[in-house]
């Protein structure tokens, strides 16, 4: 069955009940979705939760995929929606969102870190990624999504505006605002260090 390679063939085979095709499809995209989750949520646990939710959503809606768009676009649209839902749920249930708000002292909270009893995730993270995650957590969710889509998914402002249902100008403004804020965060972290 190793000859099955393109997404459409894997989807068709998975829909016929092949767990092998499903696993191959998941393996192909899990890295991108997991890292997407890491950047948006700022920690490995939430990233794993998000990834599992995304693939659950993909699985539940696989029969609806018509092949009009690329499967990668489709799966990232699901990921995008799941990330927003997850963020909203966290805000409602725990009063905690992925974004880090100012605390009473006007300082940024440190993003949730993985604990020492999670060695596999702790070891897999590089210092560089951690710093970027921390920086991104200091953005509101909508700005973080724009940065994610523009910088890491290389989408155009037109695509971003369609996905987020905003105008292109708003997308551009949010992106610039996000970069400005990140610049300040970087400058502050350099001053502190």
């Amino acid at each position: 069955m190793s000859f099955i390679d393109d997404d459409e063939a894997l989807i068709a085979t998975a829909l016929n009940g092949s767990s092998y095709a499903w696993e191959k499809l998941v393996k192909r995209y899990e890295g991108r979705i997991y890292n997407y989750g890491l950047r948006l949520t700022g920690n490995a646990t939430d990233a794993m939760d998000l990834m599992q939710e995304v693939f659950l959503g993909v699985y539940r809606n696989l029969h609806r995929f018509r092949g009009d768009a690329k499967f990668s676009s489709w799966i990232f649209r699901i990921a995008h929606n799941k990330a927003i839902d997850m963020n909203r749920r966290r805000a409602l249930i725990q009063g905690r969102t992925f974004s880090i708000e100012d605390d009473e002292n006007g300082e940024y909270l440190v993003p949730e870190q993985t604990t020492d009893n999670e060695p596999d995730t702790q070891l897999s993270k590089g210092q560089q990624n951690e710093e970027i995650q921390c920086m991104l957590q200091k953005l509101p969710m909508e700005q973080r999504l724009i940065v994610e889509l523009k910088i890491y998914q290389s989408q155009t402002f037109e695509e971003i505006s369609k996905m987020q249902e905003i105008s292109e100008n708003t997308a551009k403004t949010r992106f610039y605002a996000a970069l400005k804020k990140l610049k300040v965060v970087m400058e502050e972290s350099h001053v502190l260090s």
Partner: peptide
């Protein structure tokens, strides 16, 4: 701003922890 962008682009994908992949 360009430095900030460059800094963000230094992200290197982490490996996915083991999971059952929905099997």
């Amino acid at each position: 701003i360009q430095n900030t962008q460059s800094r963000l682009r230094q992200w290197q994908d982490d490996r996915v922890p083991h999971w059952d992949r929905g099997k």
